[in-house]
């Protein structure tokens, strides 16, 4: 059964003219890794807000259609309850630090405190997450004095410590320097093996190609394409839509156009390497 299911969903923010989501139909299954791509203003973040229940509970506006999480309509969910099911990490590393804790260790524990996790278990879980995310050396630091990249890792740690079944991650690297980006990628890679449902919005298409099981391409508030990663990223229409696809896929398509096709269109460098090698 689908964990999250959207049927003909349209949404308009208050005091705006255009719909941010138009007749969106899609579903997300448990345990899969989803990538959402598309141009800015295409509705990616709005979709995340909906899945997180921020629409319609935090953002007013007009919501029509059916959006169900675990079979229950989003309008009937309590946002507090939803926050213990769906974790959320977004762009800005600065607004994701609570500002009320004086060490990273306490900052990472904040969600667990709110959920009422017993103290001894809390300490163990925080230690484990800090180790896993490689921020063990930062636990005594004041989170309010960290760099953007470090803050983003602390933000991930706070959310991952809560151990939600689902994680919505909205462009986690868009405000980071290359080193910070690299570290966040490592976190995302480790999530790949965690059996969680992951919904990742990301511009860096190579990352999407590498990790995602399925992809949604958002355009003007609608889902333009969706399906298994390989299938979507090698679509010629997508290339013609000027949506970003991996460089190696462009290469594969160009080879086809030149009449010298590879046996398949690659989406990662490794695949391309294999395909070219097999041709000899």
């Amino acid at each position: 059964m689908s964990f999250i299911e959207l049927k003909d969903v349209s949404y308009k923010y208050p005091y705006t003219k255009d719909f941010a989501l138009k007749d969106v139909n899609c579903s997300f299954e448990k345990g899969k890794f989803y990538g959402i791509i598309g141009e800015n203003g295409g509705g990616k973040t709005t979709l995340c807000n909906l899945i997180r229940g921020l629409i319609p509970h935090f953002y007013l506006g007009k919501l029509t259609g059916e959006c169900k999480i675990e079979g229950k309509d989003i309008r009937d969910w309590d946002t507090a309850e939803l926050s213990s099911k769906i974790g959320y990490v977004f762009q800005n590393p600065f607004t994701q630090i609570s500002g009320i804790k004086s060490t990273v260790f306490e900052e990472v524990a904040i969600g667990l405190e709110n959920l009422g996790v017993p103290k001894d278990e809390m300490i163990e879980r925080v230690m484990k997450v800090c180790e896993q995310l490689d921020i063990g050396h930062l636990i005594k630091n004041n989170p309010n004095n960290l760099s953007g990249g470090q803050r983003q890792r602390v933000a991930f740690a706070s959310i991952i410590a809560m151990d939600t079944d689902t994680l919505v991650i909205d462009e986690p690297t868009s405000q980071l320097d290359p080193e910070g980006t690299e570290n966040v990628f490592k976190i995302i890679e480790s999530l790949k093996h965690s059996n969680k449902t992951i919904i990742l919005v990301e511009h860096k298409i190579d990352l999407i190609a590498q990790f995602c099981d399925e992809i949604l391409v958002m355009e003007n508030g609608s889902v333009a394409f969706s399906g298994p990663t390989h299938e979507v990223l090698t679509k010629r229409e997508l290339f013609e839509h000027k949506a970003s696809i991996p460089e190696v896929s462009k290469f594969g398509l160009a080879m086809e156009d030149a009449g010298k096709p590879l046996s398949a269109i690659p989406i990662t460098i490794e695949e391309a390497y294999e395909l070219i090698k097999e041709r000899g």
């Binding site: 923010y13 208050p14 005091y15 705006t16 003219k17 935090f58 007013l60």
Partner: peptide, 25 residues
């Protein structure tokens, strides 16, 4: 910005009539 004002108890007082008109379309 309108977006911000719309989420505050007395914020709508400061939203322009043009923006309010959009909401009723």
């Amino acid at each position: 910005p309108t977006r911000f004002l719309s989420k505050l108890p007395l914020g709508p007082i400061y939203i322009s009539d043009e923006a309010k008109a959009l909401d009723n379309e």
